[in-house]
Amino acid sequence: MYVIAHLSDPHLGPIPEARISELLGKRFFGMMNWIGARRRNFGASTLTPLIADLLAQAPDHICVTGDLVNVSLPAEFDTGATFLASLGTPHKVSVVPGNHDAYVRSALAYHLERWAPFLAGDDTHPNTPVDVDSFPYVRRRGQVAVVGVSTAIPTAVFLASGQVGRSQRNRLSDLLDRLKAEGLFRVVMIHHPPVGERAFHRDLRDAAQVRAVLARAGVELVLHGHDHRSSLGQIPAADGPIPVVGVPSASAGPDDDRGAGGYCLYRISGEPGAWNCEMERRGYRRGQSAVESLTRQMLVGSAAPQ
């Protein structure tokens, strides 16, 4: 059995001090959002016990699906790197960026530079810089392949949308075919969800095209963040529906309107054509201060929903 833990959207605070020139434009509105709401509802008092509980489960691998930072100030990416290292070594921890990790165009390269050990594929040469063309990346871990897809693009004020793009979709399609031929359980990490309905300013712009790639390849599991909610969707595919799982913000307080902080565990076993995957949701119940097991269900296997 191979166990993956999945968390997302920690929005690590506090926001560091910045020059006035750094806070012009979109960052200014992001700061106001932090001061007005997020600072009160997101924080270490929630995140620290949650991470302690996650590490106590001793997962084999940890997947982080983006939005580690808030307004993409340079120092926030150092905080993000420290957070990732606190979860484990780069061999054990994989991350993909979210829209806040590419909040403004001038910060687009920061996550690529400072989180490189955690988002470089197994085949990436140590001296090769990670760039946007490095996605999707793949990490083979036993019978499991973790595939990281980037939806992080700079957007205008009040926009939080994402896009995979044609070139990355083509690379993803080819990669998923190779991994299927290797007989691996393919776990796709992506920040923006490829299923469900949401306002245009928060959507995945090429969601339909991404769904088509995933459906044709018939991947085993898709993990995402962005919505700050627990969710379970499906993508119809020839070999059966593909489960698409969202988790709440790992830093959200027990009374957060979109859902208290939480994460998921996925217990993967079996073999090609006969995979099993059980999901356990762990986190806070509304209004409660303790992290606990919330639900368990089969996602893949004979008892999985069809």
Rank of each mutant, 00 (worst) to 15 (best):
S293L: 14
S167R: 08
R140P: 00
S86D: 07
A260D: 05
G98I: 04
S251Y: 10
H125C: 08
Y284W: 08
Q288N: 07
L47M: 13
G233P: 12
V244Q: 05
F185C: 12
N33F: 02
L184K: 06
G261C: 14
G80A: 12
Q57A: 15
I153V: 15
L294H: 00
G240Y: 04
A107P: 08
P236L: 11
N276A: 15
N99Y: 08
K92R: 14
F77D: 02
C264Y: 05
D255K: 14
F28K: 11
N127L: 15
A260S: 11
H91C: 06
Q163F: 10
H91Q: 14
H11A: 13
H11L: 13
L214C: 01
I35Y: 03
C63S: 07
G233I: 05
V157T: 15
A250E: 09
T89C: 03
A160R: 00
I35C: 03
V95E: 07
A156G: 15
R40W: 09
G162L: 12
S167L: 08
G218S: 08
P49E: 00
D203P: 00
R139F: 02
L221S: 08
N41S: 12
I15M: 03
G43A: 07
V195L: 09
R211T: 03
V244R: 05
A274P: 00
D174V: 06
L47G: 12
I35F: 02
L87A: 06
G162D: 11
H125F: 11
A109Q: 10
P194T: 08
M31H: 01
I20K: 08
N33K: 02
E17C: 04
S173M: 10
A81K: 07
I190Y: 03
R40V: 01
G25D: 06
A52L: 04
H226A: 08
M279F: 02
L204V: 04
P194S: 07
A109G: 10
Q297M: 08
L84M: 11
F28Q: 07
V188H: 02
R19S: 09
G36S: 14
L7I: 12
G225Q: 07
A44C: 03
A207S: 15
M298Q: 10
E280I: 12
V104L: 09
A290S: 04
P248D: 13
L175T: 11
L175P: 02
V95H: 06
P90G: 10
V210Y: 03
F135W: 04
L232T: 14
I20V: 11
Q306G: 10
P272Y: 05
G287W: 04
H61T: 07
A152P: 00
V188T: 04
D203M: 07
L54S: 05
G262D: 02
R211A: 03
P236A: 14
A44D: 12
S269L: 06
R139T: 12
A81P: 01
G253E: 09
A120F: 02
E182Q: 15
L47S: 11
L73Q: 04
V146S: 06
